[in-house]
Each structure stands twice: as structure tokens, then as C-alpha cells.
Measured scan of single mutants.
Amino acid sequence: MTEYKLVVVGAGGVGKSALTIQLIQNHFVDEYDPTIEDSYRKQVVIDGETCLLDILDTAGQEEYSAMRDQYMRTGEGFLCVFAINNTKSFEDIHHYREQIKRVKDSEDVPMVLVGNKCDLPSRTVDTKQAQDLARSYGIPFIETSAKTRQGVDDAFYTLVREIRKHKEKMSKDGKKKKKKSKTKCVIM
């Protein structure tokens, strides 16, 4: 069974824990209790493949930012979460993405942009803004509501699919490099 290491990042209060708990335990946590770091595991079937999701729910508070490099190193894919009623959390996505790329030393890291709290009427981040940002990053965008469960499975499952595509691409690139290195030079 394939294991996928997913990391949920975003500013404090955007609903990272609520999304994760909704996926794992099928219930909505409405009281806000700032996370330092929590880890969850769940076995699911995605596109006919049974897999184990190892999900790291991270601290959004700035005082825990020193811990970010460590979990970013171990993560295979990242859910970059903002709240649709919090423009600052949307603007912060850029910083999370840049930090992930720096730590992973790669421009090509599996990510999904997630606009959470889409059940709320007080939207300050337009869907088109988020779609445009995701398009500019070359990553999928999904709106979710941890409260109603809308888009929750889709967000995590899409990230797994992005990781699969990335692994497939990397193995193809690896095979191309191996083929090239088999060419021999004969000096007579």
C-alpha cells in the first residue's frame, strides 16, 4: 500500500485542523484551538488504489514558523489553505509557496490551493482571484467548507493525484537520464 505524506499549511484560523478532522473523523470542530502540530493517518481508496494518507496539520501562528522547514522537508505534497473571508490569509499563500519551493529546492512541488469556509456569506476573496492565482502557479484550486464537508475529500484526493503525477514524471525523467548515460565512448 502506497503511503502519501501530505502537509496542510496556511495562516492561523483558516480551518486547516477543521478540514483535516472532517476528512479523518467526519465531524466539524467549530471551536478554535490553535494547533502546534498534529499528525493523522487514514486509509482510503483513490482511483481504485488503496493508500495510506499521513497528514500533518501544522501551526499557522507566526511564533511556530521555525518548525516549518522541518515538516516541509518531509512532506510530499501540500494543501495551501486560505479562508475566503480573510484576504490576508490569501496573500500569505505566496509566502508559504515560496518557502516550500526553497526548502524542497524545487520549482515543481505537488500543491493544491484550497479556499476554505465557502459556506460563509462574508467572502472577501473572489473565486476568480483564487483561480487566477492557482493557474499562475500551475496547481489545482478547490473551494471547501469544513463545516458542510463540501470539497473536503476532493481537496485531499486531488493532492494525492498531483503527487502521483509528480512521481510518474520524475521516474520518466530518471529513465531518460539513465538511457543517456548508457551511451559509451570508444577510443581507438
Rank of each mutant, 00 (worst) to 15 (best):
T2D: 13
T2P: 06
E3V: 04
K5V: 04
L6P: 02
V7W: 12
V7T: 04
V8T: 14
V8G: 06
V8F: 01
V9Q: 08
V9A: 10
V9Y: 07
V9K: 00
G10F: 03
G10Y: 02
G10M: 03
A11S: 09
A11G: 07
G12Q: 01
G12N: 11
G12I: 02
G12K: 00
G13A: 11
G13F: 12
G13H: 13
G13N: 11
G13L: 13
G13Q: 12
V14F: 12
G15W: 07
G15L: 06
G15I: 09
G15Y: 07
K16Y: 03
S17F: 01
L19S: 13
L19N: 11
L19G: 12
T20N: 14
I21C: 07
I21E: 05
Q22K: 06
L23I: 04
I24K: 01
Q25M: 14
Q25C: 08
Q25K: 12
Q25I: 03
Q25N: 07
Q25P: 00
Q25G: 07
Q25Y: 05
N26F: 15
N26I: 03
N26Q: 11
H27P: 00
H27N: 08
H27K: 11
H27E: 06
H27C: 10
V29G: 02
D30M: 11
E31N: 04
E31A: 02
E31Q: 03
E31P: 01
E31F: 03
E31L: 03
Y32K: 00
D33V: 05
P34Y: 02
P34I: 12
I36M: 05
E37L: 00
E37K: 02
D38S: 01
S39D: 03
S39R: 00
K42D: 02
K42P: 00
K42E: 02
Q43L: 01
Q43A: 01
V44S: 07
V44Y: 02
V45C: 04
I46Y: 08
D47F: 04
D47V: 02
D47E: 06
G48V: 08
G48L: 05
G48Q: 12
E49N: 06
T50Y: 02
C51F: 06
C51Y: 11
C51T: 06
C51M: 05
C51Q: 03
L52G: 04
L52W: 04
L53D: 01
L53F: 08
L53N: 07
L53E: 05
L53R: 01
D54N: 03
D54C: 00
I55E: 00
I55K: 00
I55M: 04
L56A: 01
D57C: 00
D57T: 00
D57V: 00
T58F: 15
T58W: 14
A59C: 15
G60N: 04
E62G: 05
E62P: 08
E63I: 08
Y64A: 15
Y64K: 01
A66K: 01
A66T: 12
A66W: 04
M67D: 00
M67T: 04
M67E: 00
R68N: 15
Q70H: 04
Y71L: 15
Y71S: 09
Y71R: 00
M72T: 13
R73V: 11
R73G: 05
R73Q: 09
T74E: 07
G75C: 13
G75K: 03
E76P: 01
E76L: 05
E76W: 06
E76Q: 05
G77E: 02
G77Q: 06
G77S: 07
F78V: 06
F78G: 01
F78R: 02
F78I: 13
L79Q: 01
L79S: 02
C80Y: 14
C80G: 04
V81A: 10
V81F: 15
F82G: 10
A83Q: 15
A83W: 01
I84A: 14
I84C: 13
I84E: 15
N85I: 12
N86H: 01
N86P: 01
K88Y: 07
F90L: 06
D92H: 10
I93N: 08
I93G: 03
I93T: 14
H95M: 15
Y96A: 09
Y96G: 05
I100W: 03
K101V: 03
K101Q: 08
R102S: 05
R102G: 05
V103G: 06
K104E: 05
K104V: 12
K104T: 13
D105Q: 05
S106W: 13
S106C: 14
E107N: 12
E107Y: 14
D108W: 03
D108L: 06
D108Y: 08
M111P: 03
V112L: 10
L113R: 02
V114R: 03
V114N: 00
G115F: 12
G115I: 11
N116Y: 02
N116W: 04
K117C: 14
K117N: 14
K117Q: 15
K117F: 14
K117I: 14
D119C: 06
D119E: 08
D119N: 10
L120Q: 03
L120H: 06
L120R: 14
P121K: 11
P121S: 13
P121V: 10
P121N: 14
P121I: 09
S122F: 09
S122Y: 09
S122H: 10
S122G: 13
S122K: 10
R123M: 13
T124H: 10
T124L: 09
V125Q: 10
D126I: 07
T127A: 10
K128W: 08
K128H: 09
K128C: 09
Q129L: 11
Q129E: 12
Q129P: 13
Q129A: 13
Q129H: 09
Q129T: 13
A130D: 08
A130H: 07
A130R: 09
A130N: 07
A130M: 13
Q131M: 11
Q131I: 07
D132N: 09
L133F: 11
A134Y: 09
A134D: 02
R135F: 12
R135K: 14
R135D: 14
S136Y: 15
S136N: 08
S136T: 04
Y137N: 12
Y137W: 08
Y137T: 07
I139L: 13
I139N: 07
I139V: 09
F141S: 07
K147E: 09
Q150K: 05
V152L: 13
D153L: 06
D154R: 08
D154P: 08
F156T: 12
F156H: 15
F156S: 07
F156P: 04
Y157M: 07
T158D: 05
T158S: 08
L159M: 10
V160W: 06
V160T: 08
V160N: 08
V160A: 07
R161L: 14
R161P: 14
E162H: 14
E162P: 01
R164D: 06
R164Q: 04
R164E: 04
R164V: 06
R164A: 01
K165Y: 10
K165W: 06
H166T: 12
H166A: 12
H166W: 06
K167C: 12
K167H: 13
E168G: 14
K169M: 12
M170D: 07
M170V: 13
K172C: 12
K172Q: 11
K172G: 06
K172R: 04
D173F: 15
D173I: 15
D173P: 09
G174K: 15
G174D: 13
G174R: 08
K175C: 06
K175S: 06
K176E: 13
K177C: 12
K178E: 09
K178Q: 15
K178D: 11
K178H: 11
K178A: 09
K180L: 08
K180V: 04
S181F: 09
T183Y: 03
T183R: 06
C185W: 04
M188K: 12
M188Y: 14
M188N: 14
M188C: 07
